[in-house]
Design a protein around this nucleic acid. Structure first.
Lengths: 215, 215
DNA sequence: ACGATGTTGATACGGCGGTACCATAAAGGG
DNA sequence: CCCTTTATGGTACCGCCGTATCAACATCGT
């Protein structure tokens, strides 16, 4: 058997081309030909690995979420050994804010898919919902552990706070995308709530900042 | 001059047809012919009042936001004479949650437009941003007035809280749309934060609820 | 070297969607 | 009564897009 080629690898290359071009021009504008051109490959080959556009879109979504979770994982490990619960929570929340090109396209495309899934049953059947409430559960667990360790107020509702933090991160992410808000202001709002939740006086673990508001 | 017809009225009728069909099948699927059929009118007439599809879409967005702000205004006046600041804030936040068909389609379409505006310059140039931060300013004002009246803690940051509340409302609205969250849980989260912000023991003004969590 | 696998190219079909043109019919005001 | 406005209908152009088909070439394991 000749010319062994890893099909998943090829599919990933093409899916990344899809993500790139969709991130630039919008998911609704991309066609098979655009993806092929962006991948530097013939249209025929895109059809060869993905028989239909629908499958290509599904695979693109899958790849998008996979790459993002990998990135978040790397960022969590990058917080150093034995990070504090607050540092972990903070890294989790800030990782999904659209700050650079990668997070921007992720946020844009993920939201695009989500909106499409409202009126597209095939897309809604895709594993779509379980990703956000996995994040919700993880965050709720982190907060509960922190609470048990005495790092937070004893009266806070960890589940509700987890939902709130993720919701704020998501919505302010979109605000950043449309140019209504700056990443800095979003970070400031999140910090405000982390300061409220975590009673210890530990502050922003990643980048040192001036304690007072800049004049 | 014969056959006087209010052009704006006709345009509104067509725009409402656009909103209806887009709310059902998704904004990206609607064509001129769909809008004409939904409005019970000829394709030719749609072209007659809106020369191009782009103009139709713009007008549709305008009509959507106008109708929504009118609805919110009505809801605010519906809270009775001299509503408490908390009741006003609560009405403002709950009005944008997708609970019935109208709010559902509004949330869906407005988010669709917002996402489109990220990669479409013509749409981004449309008055789009000023609506949300008008809401933010209004909410911040309400909170500040409540604070000056001693209804809230003196240490809360009204601007930050306004941003947070709107962000949570928006993101949880989308969660409701995609079926991840129920309207009730979203309302519960918002109530939680209102309880935190407003120190007076006034509670949910609209529907009475059991104080404890249901078993 | 043979043959299965990967890859390209060109080309075309069918459909749909935005836009356009034209002829025509009601309708109501001057 | 006439003429402008409003509205319909049909029809067609043009371009794009997803999909399909066919021929050809490259490549590499066996």
């Amino acid at each position: 058997m000749p010319k062994r080629v890893d099909h998943d690898e090829r599919r990933t290359q093409i899916a990344e081309a899809l993500v790139r071009v969709a991130g630039r021009r919008g998911l609704h504008t991309v066609g098979m030909r655009d993806v092929a051109a962006e991948a530097g490959v013939s249209l025929r080959l895109v059809q060869y690995y993905f028989q239909t556009k629908e499958k290509l879109l599904f695979y693109g979504l899958q790849h998008l979420t996979d790459r993002f979770t990998a990135r978040v994982g790397a960022r969590l490990r990058g917080t150093g050994p034995a990070p504090t619960p607050r540092a972990t929570v903070e890294a989790l929340l800030l990782a999904s804010l659209p700050t650079d090109e990668e997070t921007r396209t992720f946020h844009l495309l993920y939201t695009s898919y989500a909106i499409l899934s409202v009126t597209d049953k095939a897309l809604a059947a895709q594993p779509f919902i379980d990703r956000p409430d996995a994040a919700e559960n993880a965050l709720a667990d982190l907060l509960r552990q922190a609470q048990e360790a005495g790092l937070t107020g004893r009266d806070i509702d960890t589940r509700t706070e987890a939902i709130s933090l993720l919701a704020m991160s998501a919505a302010m992410g979109t605000s950043i995308l449309v140019g209504q808000r700056t990443p800095e202001s979003a970070v400031a709002v999140l910090h405000h709530h982390l300061d409220r939740i975590f009673t210890t006086d530990e502050r922003r673990s990643t980048a040192p900042r001036t304690p007072g508001p800049p004049q």
